[in-house]
């Protein structure tokens, strides 16, 4: 169990030093002791992570199989897969799954990712003042606290809000966006808030492409779209993968933005899984059921997380 072989090189390295205190053939007990003392600084972090992160996850896996409720129940009892069976027959749950899918695809895969890439590509070509100005504005939207972003977009999409004022000015039909198309409104809000991250990731990736390659293709007469498709995109594919994973994970756990804008409503027409989970657990006091939903979300998140790790595998 002790890390004897890896400790070997360390010993050899320090041995040549004239004043190195430990004699080269360290006895086994001492090397174990040293491994332990070296690992000691990790312990505060480890304790925190075990108590406040691993603990809740384990607890989550446990109460998802119970009928724990918030009030008026002396003891919770083990109910097996009952919560999950309920979930998959619960129309509200299926609705939340569907909305989560729509929200993720619209705002993360299509919105943030494509817009972020487009902005990054345009920034490569644009003049410096325009680049700085746009970058500053987009990043400000990203740095703002989630709740503030929610309020700003609530104001933007409301019936009396900016969007309708512009549509009126253009003589286009206006409507109450938060009522007619709530999921679209919150998806746009998430695009507004999250695009900067993709933009930064792609800008960094595009800067790493050697200029000669794109210039050579340009001289050979390859048009913009063909260069993009055959040269740029293949060269930044790792960044695309990383970015898609992180965007999707972030989007899966959006709560505050939707809560502020619509509270999941009207009805439950913008109720994604995190909001559904919250409602079941606290407004309907079904902690067990809410946690079962949370566990499903966690499993989906973990799958994405594993894929993300595989993408980064070579770097650990």
């Amino acid at each position: 169990m002790t890390a004897a072989p890896p400790a070997g090189p360390g010993v050899v390295k320090t041995a040549p030093g004239p004043t190195a205190p430990p004699p080269p053939p360290a006895p086994r007990g001492r090397s174990a002791l040293r491994t332990l003392s070296r690992a000691l600084p990790v312990s505060p972090a480890l304790v925190l992570l075990i108590l406040f992160l691993a603990g809740p996850i384990a607890y989550c896996a446990y109460i998802a199989f119970t009928d724990l409720q918030l009030t008026g129940q002396a003891e919770d009892s083990f109910v097996g897969f009952e919560n999950f069976r309920t979930a998959f027959q619960d129309e509200a749950f299926l609705n939340a799954v569907w909305l989560t899918l729509v929200f993720t695809i619209l705002s993360s895969l299509i919105g943030q990712n494509t817009l972020g890439l487009s902005l990054a590509v345009l920034m490569q070509r644009a003049s410096k003042p325009v680049r700085t100005l746009t970058g500053g504005i987009v990043i400000t939207a990203w740095v703002l606290p989630e709740v503030v972003a929610g309020f700003l977009l609530y104001a933007f999409f409301r019936r009396e809000g900016t969007l309708n004022a512009i549509l009126d000015w253009l003589h286009l039909p206006s409507q109450n966006w938060l009522f007619t198309l709530p999921i679209l409104a919150v998806s746009f809000a998430n695009v507004w808030r999250g695009t900067a991250f993709s933009m930064l990731v792609y800008s960094a990736a595009l800067n790493e492409i050697p200029k000669e390659i794109t210039e050579a293709a340009e001289v050979d007469g390859a048009g913009g779209w063909r260069r993009m498709w055959h040269i740029t995109l293949p060269m930044i594919r790792r960044s695309i993968g990383t970015n898609l994973m992180l965007n999707t994970l972030q989007t899966l756990s959006v709560f505050g933005l939707i809560w502020v804008m619509t509270r999941g409503g009207p009805g439950n027409r913008s109720q994604t899984l995190p909001l559904f989970m919250y409602e079941q657990a606290f407004q309907k006091s079904m902690i067990g059921y809410g946690t079962a939903v949370a566990l499903l979300l966690l499993v989906v998140g973990s799958l994405f997380s594993v894929v993300y790790m595989r993408l980064l595998r070579t770097e650990v």
């Binding site: 406040f52 992160l53 809740p56 996850i57 607890y59 989550c60 109460i63 994973m245 992180l246 994970l249 899966l252 756990s253 959006v254 709560f255 995190p274 989970m277 919250y278 657990a281 902690i287 809410g290 946690t291 949370a294 566990l295 979300l297 966690l298 998140g301 973990s302 994405f304 997380s305 993300y308």
Partner: peptide, 11 residues
């Protein structure tokens, strides 16, 4: 990359 939102109910 775990969604922290998901564990708030058990927390």
């Amino acid at each position: 990359s775990l969604p922290i939102t998901a564990i708030m109910v058990p927390v």
